[in-house]
Simulated scan of single mutants.
Amino acid sequence: MKLTSPLVLLVISAAVGTLGWLAALLTTRYSLNTPVLPLNGLITMGVIVVLTLVLGIRVLRWRNGNKKKMLNPILAALTLVLAQACAYTGAVLLGWHAGIFVDQLRLWNLRSDQTLAWQALAMAGGGLAMVVVGLMVERFCRIPPEDGEGEPAPGLQEKRKPKAEGEYAYRGD
């Protein structure tokens, strides 16, 4: 499985940010409510971030030497999937709310109450936290290379012909 590219997440955030900016522009023009998640969404985002981080630290501890107890491979795979989902979701939330915040900046001096702008900024910060934790935990789930990484697994060794005179595929001592 490939690691999530931060560049892909940046492109997703930029595209969704443009959509968020357009949505905020249209809702302001037609006197509709601006599409911002409520602040209690930060609680949900925080729970997801903490859960992802706790599971990632568990995998990291096992990977770095605490191998007395076997790690459930399904749990490790689910941790990886959760980390990737956290990163992608955070990129979408970051982009959407950053786009709304940019739209609210042009109205900053015209409004006496800037709670919508601060709310969008807080949600964008929560999205950024999700991206950072998702990418970090995804790297926790990587298995370090073994000593003989270039060698095929036992039983799957291919038969090869000697490349030069005197080189053999096996030693018959």
Rank of each mutant, 00 (worst) to 15 (best):
S5L: 06
S5Q: 07
L7F: 13
V8W: 14
L9G: 00
L10M: 12
L10V: 11
I12G: 05
I12H: 05
V16H: 04
L19Q: 12
L19A: 15
G20C: 03
W21M: 12
A23Q: 07
L25I: 03
T27F: 01
T27W: 04
T27N: 07
R29I: 08
Y30G: 04
T34S: 09
P38G: 05
N40A: 07
G46I: 02
V47I: 14
I48Q: 03
T52Q: 04
L55A: 14
L55W: 07
G56V: 01
I57V: 11
R58W: 07
R61M: 12
R63H: 08
N64A: 07
N66P: 03
K69R: 15
K69V: 15
K69F: 11
N72Y: 06
N72R: 05
P73Q: 10
A76I: 01
A77Y: 11
L78D: 10
L78I: 10
L78T: 11
L78F: 12
V81C: 06
V81M: 10
Q84P: 01
A87F: 00
A87T: 01
Y88T: 04
T89H: 06
G90F: 00
A91C: 01
A98T: 10
A98R: 02
G99M: 03
G99C: 04
F101P: 00
V102T: 09
D103R: 09
D103T: 06
L105D: 05
L107R: 13
W108I: 14
W108N: 09
W108H: 12
R111Q: 14
D113G: 04
D113S: 05
L116M: 11
L116W: 00
A117R: 04
A120K: 03
A124P: 03
M130F: 02
V131G: 02
V132E: 02
G134W: 00
L135S: 02
L135F: 02
R142E: 12
E149D: 15
E149M: 08
E149Y: 08
E151C: 07
E151Y: 12
P152G: 06
A153K: 14
A153Y: 11
L156G: 13
Q157L: 13
K161D: 15
K163Q: 15
K163L: 13
E167C: 08
A169K: 14
D173Q: 15
